[in-house]
């Protein structure tokens, strides 16, 4: 059968099937377009990675000279000397307290969404929307809210106020992480427990939560890493403190690492700026390491649960 007689639909796009398998017709031009797009996409990805490298490197070279054991374990002397021990302790206090508040609320909310609300429940829908909105709130506004709620009535800025604001930042993250992990718990586990006549809440406590605890923990770590670097709420709520003293009084101002950076940046003292870079590097390293660790762990947990 001749080739021409097979082509009844038109003239364009004709090809000889016995020709070598090199591009025919307009394929050469299309390949050029395709390659161009791929090059652009690859360049964009490289640019993003380069951006990360530039930022991390920029902080690293400026901060690494400040890092030392003394930097982490001494309190400041004057405006520029000593270490940042009290700031680290303060951040730890504020973030830990915030996480203590946020974790139960986040996990319980996640439990409510996965274990107690029906898939088409309107209540669950509004709750998910509320979590979305909460996650999308500018953190500075969360700071303002707590300022009006706590600082104005008490007439004093405090680490506690900052903790509560950070808790509001963390709750939606933790709720979402819990919800995602709980959804991975196989339904057969729930059904098996139901079939044994076990109460739902007992099932949740003894079967479902234990199998999801790894995922919830990693989600919590990601949320904590996020909160540790939050500056806007502490700026509004916890900016008045004794900069040279370690304090455990969360009902008053507690120094935090982000505030140290924020206040030192524009000081006309090179040593203070150097200390801020050191603090920035330390903060960034801790956050990035927590992120990487949590992600690796999360990927492993998920792979295990998906099996």
């Amino acid at each position: 059968m001749s080739i021409a007689s097979r082509l009844v639909l038109g003239e364009s796009g004709r090809f000889d099937p016995t020709a070598p398998l090199t591009p025919s017709g307009n394929l050469r031009r299309r390949t050029v377009v395709d390659r161009t797009v791929r090059v652009i996409a690859t360049a964009a990805a490289l640019a993003a990675v380069a951006m990360l490298v530039i930022v991390v490197y920029g902080v690293f070279v400026r901060g690494v000279s400040s890092l030392s054991l003394a930097f982490a374990f001494q309190t400041p002397q004057g405006l520029a000397g000593g270490g940042i021990f009290n700031y680290l302790v303060g951040t730890l206090e504020v973030v830990a307290l915030g996480a203590t508040i946020a974790l139960p609320i986040g996990v319980l909310t996640g439990l409510y969404l996965t274990e107690f609300a029906g898939p088409r429940s309107r209540v669950a829908g509004s709750l998910k929307l509320a979590l979305d909105v909460m996650q999308g709130l500018p953190t500075i506004v969360v700071g303002l809210f707590i300022y009006g709620l706590i600082v104005i009535p008490q007439h004093v800025q405090s680490g506690l106020a900052a903790s509560i604001a950070l808790a509001i930042v963390m709750v939606p993250l933790m709720a979402r992480a819990s919800q995602e992990v709980l959804l991975l718990v196989p339904n057969s586990l729930r059904e098996a427990a139901d079939a044994l006549g076990v109460n739902r809440w007992r099932t949740v406590l003894t079967v479902i939560l234990p199998s999801a605890v790894g995922g919830i923990a990693t989600g919590a770590i990601l949320a904590i890493a996020r909160a540790a670097g939050e500056t806007a709420p502490v700026l509004i709520l916890d900016s008045i403190y004794n900069p040279n003293q370690t304090t455990f009084d969360i009902f008053h101002g507690v120094p935090t690492v982000p505030m140290l950076i924020f206040t030192s940046v524009e000081l006309p003292i090179p040593e203070a700026v150097a200390r801020a870079w050191g603090a920035a590097l330390l903060l960034m390293l801790m956050i990035l390491i927590a992120n990487i660790g949590a992600r690796v762990w999360l990927a492993r947990t998920r792979a295990k649960m998906a099996r």
Binding site: P20, L21, T22, L27
Partner: peptide
């Protein structure tokens, strides 16, 4: 090495 994958699938 000379075969173009897109061309192959076009045919």
């Amino acid at each position: 090495s000379g075969a173009n994958r897109v061309e192959v699938r076009r045919r």
